[in-house]
């Protein structure tokens, strides 16, 4: 893998963001709205529910963690869709870029894009609602890492679909996370789900991540087995998604879609 080629692909997207104030605004706008909305909902629950007493940060923290996951996945998809929308797709595949370089460049650029949106929202949490994610301590980094891996995994799977089936797969890019959110137990414990759904939910790393977040925030207990389970599952899914991306690329070459992907 060559750094200059990966940097060039990242640079293309950084120029795009840098050159458009509405794009920067769009990146920051939604996470901030999420924080404000969930912040007020959390305050309301704190005042009117015993369960949430003294736990104002739980819902708000889970909302920001979920938004980080959402942004990671959408950012990855967006970077790929931008190439299709701008009809630049073929230019990339006739450049001396390796598939591994494309994946690495998109993965790192998606992180930068996500951070541009999420950092202002995190900074707003403390002055507006008196909640700081940093109170979760070092495990917070591992939770973010897990969410980033899972977001990238979903991004890889959706872009594999775009490669293989073309822009018709675009709607899936937007809906993929909404399908998984109920099973991820973002705002409620796993025990709320019916037993048969719990079995499916346990196959997702999200359950372990959000159970762990609640464990730290409510009980002040760090359960490393949850963190380990999430990371192991994530690694398995991430590697599988990379393999699927390679298979989709080979399928696209066979089908001839790399030369005429467009709107």
């Amino acid at each position: 893998m060559k750094f200059n080629r990966m940097y060039a692909l990242s640079l293309r997207h950084l120029y795009l963001i840098k050159g458009s104030f509405p794009r920067i605004l769009d990146l920051i706008y939604w996470p901030t709205i999420q924080i404000v909305l969930w912040g007020f909902i959390s305050q309301f629950f704190t005042m009117h529910s015993d369960y949430y007493n003294n736990t104002i940060g739980v819902i708000l923290s889970c909302a920001i963690l979920y938004d980080f996951l959402f942004r990671s996945s959408i950012s990855f998809n967006m970077l790929f869709l931008e190439e299709i929308w701008s009809r630049n797709f073929t230019n990339l595949f006739i450049a001396p870029l390796k598939v591994s370089e494309i994946i690495t460049a998109l993965t790192t650029t998606a992180l930068l894009r996500t951070l541009v949106g999420i950092i202002p929202a995190i900074l707003l949490m403390s002055p507006f609602f008196g909640v700081s994610l940093l109170q979760m301590g070092p495990p917070l980094f591992l939770l973010f890492l897990s969410l980033y891996l899972f977001g990238t995994t979903l991004g890889l799977l959706v872009t594999s679909g775009l490669l293989r089936f073309g822009p018709a797969f675009e709607n899936t890019a937007w809906s993929s996370l909404f399908l998984l959110a109920p099973l991820g137990c973002v705002y409620y414990p796993l025990s709320i789900l019916p037993e048969w759904l719990q079995i499916i939910a346990k196959v997702l790393p999200l359950v372990y991540i959000f159970e762990e977040a609640r464990s730290i925030l409510i009980n002040n207990v760090v359960n490393y087995s949850n963190i380990t389970s999430a990371l192991i599952l994530n690694l398995v899914y991430f590697i599988s998604a990379i393999i699927i991306f390679y298979i989709a690329f080979a399928g696209a070459r066979k089908k001839g879609t790399l030369i005429n992907v467009g709107e």
């Binding site: 060559k2 200059n4 080629r5 940097y7 060039a8 692909l9 640079l11 293309r12 120029y15 795009l16 050159g19 458009s20 931008e82 701008s86 009809r87 630049n88 797709f89 073929t90 230019n91 006739i94 450049a95 001396p96 870029l97 005429n260 467009g262």
Partner: peptide
């Protein structure tokens, strides 16, 4: 690295300036 291609059916990113597009592809080709 030693080939290139033009077609009216493919374009360069419209929101990037001419110079930015050439910088991106120049770096991509090393």
């Amino acid at each position: 690295e030693k080939m290139n291609f033009i077609s009216p059916y493919i374009e360069l990113p419209k929101k990037l300036t001419v110079e930015e597009n050439l910088k991106v592809y120049g770096r991509m080709y090393g």
